[in-house]
């Protein structure tokens, strides 16, 4: 790590947590603002059932922008997702221009409609668990996401979701 590595790891950590808040609040454009033009996103999992690494969703920044813009046209479970994120490791490259970070992430679903809102609304359920594996470009003291892989532990996803994780 370079002499100014501390500042850079702080920038990476800041981006991860700002992204978590933006996604929690469904401020999709704020989330995408944290991403570089070449950003690539994917949700993955390994299935022991079929013995394969799987991709459940992926897209470029443009494709993710399209996905979130189209959300109002779709019927969606309204129960918000919130995440608890803990940054485990940040590795800044020798030249200080890129960084990789691994975070633990747990997604909670705060039931709103669910199956029966009279009974379930207000309840919080564990939704999914996994890790964020992020790559950043660092420029002018800011860390922009160039790649995010959401590595899920789950293959049981019940109703799933229309939203990026």
């Amino acid at each position: 790590m370079q002499a100014n590595g501390h500042d850079k790891t702080a920038a990476v950590r800041d981006s991860i947590y700002r992204a978590a808040l933006a996604l929690d609040d469904q401020r999709w454009q704020d989330w995408l603002e944290l991403c570089a033009p070449e950003f690539h996103y994917k949700i993955t999992s390994f299935s022991p059932e079929i013995n394969k690494d799987m991709i459940y969703l992926q897209g470029t920044r443009k494709e993710m922008d399209n996905l979130v813009r189209m959300l109002p046209k779709h019927n969606t479970d309204h129960s918000p997702l919130h995440r608890h994120t803990s940054v485990y490791t940040i590795d800044v490259s020798e030249d200080g221009k890129t960084a990789q970070a691994v975070s633990s992430v747990v997604f909670y679903q705060n039931m709103l409609d669910g199956n029966n809102s009279h009974i379930e609304a207000g309840e919080t359920r564990l939704f999914l668990a996994g890790r964020y594996v992020d790559t950043f470009a660092i420029e002018d003291g800011a860390a922009k996401f160039v790649d995010r892989e959401v590595k899920l532990d789950n293959r049981r996803l019940d109703k799933g979701s229309h939203w990026p994780l």
Binding site: S47, I50, K52, M54, R155, R156, K159, G160
Partner: peptide, 9 residues
């Protein structure tokens, strides 16, 4: 097969 997931509903 390239995809597997399950739902319990």
């Amino acid at each position: 097969v390239f995809h597997y997931h399950k739902a319990i509903v």
